[in-house]
């Protein structure tokens, strides 16, 4: 089987991000998964064991003191070096901000084709097929790369199965100083590491609030319901624009796309751009005081009512059942 490279995302402290397991599982569908990691020299002890347990057959550790100092280029260099050595059938990155930067640059450098935001990958008679969810899930499209190597970004968490654990071999290579033009990182604020709630992307349950919450203080209601369900917190763009929550909470066309088992929309009208980010959720619940809100067109259970009356009662009922 040919090698398939998977770029592992790491935190500023060098820890493996939660996206690794899903990306390695995606790689395993197309060939032998090789985890590629860019890390500061000597900072990545124990990596082979950890990534092997997530399905990597080999760990290609590219060491450079530019990691964390230059934006995206050390990761591009790491993948380019691994590609030259291992002749992969495909190169995968996470469809994250960094993953897309790296994939874009790398595709041009390797004269490879680029496919972004695959939600699934599978082998086919002629090679492999990538599956996409287009226009907010309204269409399913299958595509592939012809005429050269392939770089593919995979939606985080979209591939849910896990590759079997193996004993990974470790290859450590020093990266030379990159000659290509790069942006410099002056400061890093890692916020994910400090939150106790589930991450929005890939969450099983999501509770989102909209402009109907009325104020930043009132948005606590959304958090209370989310915590009683063990859910992630999301928001509409209007709620973000009003300053109730940071932009990273935004669900929709220009925010995060989510596809949880349960999505609860509180005080959200259900504008087409919001729906584009959540309409593939398994079960949708909406609470809105306007009976004509478009969110009700796609809700499995809709409540025409005031969030300030319905949600506290719901939280109480959930807590009563839990105890």
């Amino acid at each position: 089987m040919s090698n398939v490279l998977a770029l592992i995302e790491t935190s500023a402290a060098g820890e493996i991000r939660s996206t690794a397991a899903s990306l390695l599982a995606a790689a395993a569908r197309l060939g032998t998964p090789v985890a590629v990691v860019a890390a500061a020299p000597g900072s990545a002890a124990g990596l082979a064991e950890q990534l092997g347990s997530l399905g990597a057959a080999q760990v290609y550790l590219a060491e450079s003191d530019q990691v964390g100092r230059l934006l995206a280029t050390p990761q591009v260099e790491a993948l380019a070096a691994a590609a030259a050595e291992l002749e992969p059938a495909a190169i995968l990155t996470v469809n994250s901000v960094e993953g897309r930067d790296v994939a874009g640059r790398l595709a041009v450098r390797l004269r490879a084709g680029l496919i972004t935001d695959a939600v699934d990958l599978r082998p086919s008679d002629t090679g492999w097929v990538a599956v996409h969810s287009v226009f907010g899930g309204a269409y399913t499209v299958e595509s592939t790369i012809e005429g050269g190597p392939a770089v593919i970004t995979v939606r985080p968490g979209a591939v849910e199965d896990r590759a079997p654990a193996q004993a990974a071999t470790l290859t450590t290579v020093p990266l030379g100083t990159s000659a290509s033009a790069a942006a410099v990182i002056d400061g890093i604020r890692d916020t994910v590491a400090t939150s106790s709630r589930p991450e929005l992307r890939g969450a099983e349950k999501v509770v989102s609030g909209g402009r109907g919450l009325g104020s930043k203080e009132n948005f606590v209601l959304v958090e209370q319901l989310a915590d009683s369900l063990g859910a992630a917190v999301g928001a509409s763009r209007a709620a973000v624009d009003a300053g109730y929550v940071p932009q990273t909470f935004q669900v929709g066309q220009t925010g995060t796309s989510v596809s949880p088992q349960l999505y609860i929309a509180l005080g959200i009208s259900g504008a087409i751009q919001h729906r584009a980010g959540m309409q593939t959720s398994k079960t949708i619940v909406a609470i809105n005081k306007d009976p004509d809100s478009p969110i009700f067109d796609i809700a499995d259970f809709g409540v025409v009512g005031d969030v300030f009356a319905v949600v506290p009662q719901l939280v109480k009922a959930i807590e009563a059942r839990a105890s």
Binding site: S11, R17, L71, S96, V97, E98, R189, D190, V192
Partner: peptide, 8 residues
């Protein structure tokens, strides 16, 4: 990014 922010 998904994980926080950077000054660049």
């Amino acid at each position: 990014s998904e994980y926080g922010s950077l000054d660049v």
